[in-house]
Amino acid sequence: MRLYWEVFRHGYRRWATYRAATAAGVFTNTVFGFLRAYVLVAVFAASATIGGYDRSDALTYVFLGQGMIMAVYMWSWWEIALAIRSGDIVTDLSRPFDYQAYWLAQDLGRACYHAVFRGIPPFVVGAIVFDLRMPESPLTWVLFAASVVMAVCVSFGVRFLVNLAAFWLLDYRGVGAIATACGTFLSGFVVPVAFFPGWLAVIAHALPFRGMIQVPIDVFLEKESGGALFVMLAVQVGWAAALFAAGRLVLRAARRRVVVQGG
């Protein structure tokens, strides 16, 4: 366990090295938060609630989402795919650790850095300018934090699988584009899944992506309580576990069948 704790810290420090990038990222995420917020302000001028969300819910939704982008790391993470393509993966595969656990620990370390330094600033700025909805129960904060951790796990599970596709496909970017599109829309990042037409909402509920954004935000907004809240979180945990298991199976198959690139 000590090893994975060290890897976690290492994941954190790797990203903490790039301070200018962090500042630029915070700026961008905040600006886009404002763009999205003003669109919604216009929309809610015409209608008091949409899909159960009022104006204040929707604005909170936007700034929580903007803050979670980097922690959840929805877009373009290709470290494993690039290591497969360059062949550098051979060194990590010859080490005495569990390859998936190693990357998960590193990714959680990274997410921890991003949650604090890329997540909190856009939300605080949003909360100063707009009237955002804060949780009524203190327990909600705890559940929200737990759900964000699970969101990182779900996202990691998806990214790990998509990256492993590089073992079979010389160009992994096709699969990546599909995963990115799914992550962006079906996670509820652009608009809440509750805004979707019925058939699309059914699809979104049947897939893991909702657990990356929608679930933690609904926890924060206290949209569900009691049994329904429990089920929502249990499904999120279930998806993380299923994705990890799938990742292990695919990695095992890759080891057996596939050429490591580069001789």
Partner: peptide, 29 residues
Amino acid sequence: IGVVFGQRTQLWWDLPLADSFTLLKHIYR
């Protein structure tokens, strides 16, 4: 066993060299 692939790296690209050694210390206990 120890392995060095001359055209690959087993060091962590964006950290000081010493940090890679510390991490390996834990990996190999």
